[in-house]
Design a binder for these strands. Structure first.
Lengths: 202, 202
DNA sequence: ACAAATTTTAACCATTTGGTTAATAAATGC
DNA sequence: GCATTTATTAACCAAATGGTTAAAATTTGT
């Protein structure tokens, strides 16, 4: 039963923190939705801050390895790109609030988040190796010469941005939010096509 | 003196709300930083909610027209694109926290923000006209056939995303945040080059 | 110069909120 | 079966926070 309570708390807390952010999330609300006494939250996690930290930690553990591993396999730039874009967009369709959560609290609770992020520094080389690979393929004339850092920024932006901008985008473009998911289904192909034309050598 | 106090409040409040979000911003903190009594905040703006609304309103007034007007002038797709990308990136370099603020509170206080957004519906047609123009230039063979909605998403993503992702990006890529601004200076050219290759007809 | 309106302040107030405590219930080990 | 540990609860607490009020200072109109 013990693990059960703990996991219920974590589940509810994650939902609440993701939806409302740290400051707007109420411990009482978490307790109510988990169907337990508020004191349990402190019994298991000591404080709101610690509970939040745990959620952050879990979230990073769930996202970063997926991302890094999809980069850390064999293949040329295009193989890797297709893999990483596919993985990422699929993940985001399943959990569309994720990028928002990560970036939201990041800007406000910068230090603690960055610390938590740096604990996963083991995964960063995958990214830097990817950049090296881009440079290599550029120098052998397989890719057009665009600054690699910008290429990475572009890839990330093309994948992640729509999920962050969904509400504002749907409003301005007058698209029902239900149609949005559908739009995202095509997204992998659009991105691949876009990148391909942008980076292929003439 | 009256207008002076009011504007000081607005200035400080904007900084605070942008930096901390609604829930984490303290009225007392605003008062202190503005060097006035907390009661003044309520004297001029009645409540925290109303004050926040005012900031949202001002912010949208500052951003949306700039964006819409840069789309609402003459020129073919490429002329417009260069104008809108230039305007946007320039604005964001000056106020890098802006997209974050807009998108942050958007997801949490959805209703009130969307309402405020819809009050500016007058500006939306510029965007839809831009899409129409894309479709036209595609049918006359001037642009490659990529779904226009995705083109718009791509443009927005390429412009805005780096500013949202700055902290996480700089950490993972091991780039000092000071170097980031420099990176953004090249951004307009990179984006234009990228779009050009992605959309030109073979 | 002075009355009326406006602006500003200090002291309060009610509520919310994270967190604690002491007592109770349930599980565990022997 | 019983003592000990673990899990859970209800009641409580102190601090923080948005908001109010009544009085004082300042400005404005005449």
């Amino acid at each position: 039963m013990a693990k059960d309570t703990e996991n219920t708390i974590l589940d509810v807390a994650r939902q609440e923190f993701v939806q409302n952010g740290f400051a707007a999330t109420r411990m009482q609300e978490i307790a109510d939705k988990a169907g337990i006494n508020k004191a349990m939250l402190h019994y298991y996690f000591r404080s709101k801050e610690k509970l939040y930290q745990e959620i952050i930690s879990q979230t990073l553990n769930r996202v970063i390895p997926i991302f890094a591993q999809s980069l850390d396999q064999d293949g040329d730039f295009w193989t890797k790109l297709e893999r990483v874009v596919g993985t990422y967009v699929k993940l985001l369709i399943k959990e569309p609030d994720l990028p928002f959560f990560i970036m939201s609290e990041l800007s406000q609770k910068r230090e603690s988040f960055i610390i938590e992020l740096k604990k996963r520094a083991q995964y960063f080389p995958a990214m830097r190796k990817f950049i090296m690979q881009i440079m290599e393929e550029q120098s052998t004339g397989k890719l057009r010469e665009v600054p690699p850092v910008h290429i990475v920024l572009n890839i990330m932006g093309l994948c992640v941005f729509p999920f962050i901008a969904k509400p504002i985008f749907c409003t301005i473009m007058d698209i029902p939010e239900e149609d949005f998911k559908e739009l995202m289904q095509d997204r992998v192909n659009v991105i691949m096509d876009f990148m391909h034309h942008a980076l292929k050598v003439d």
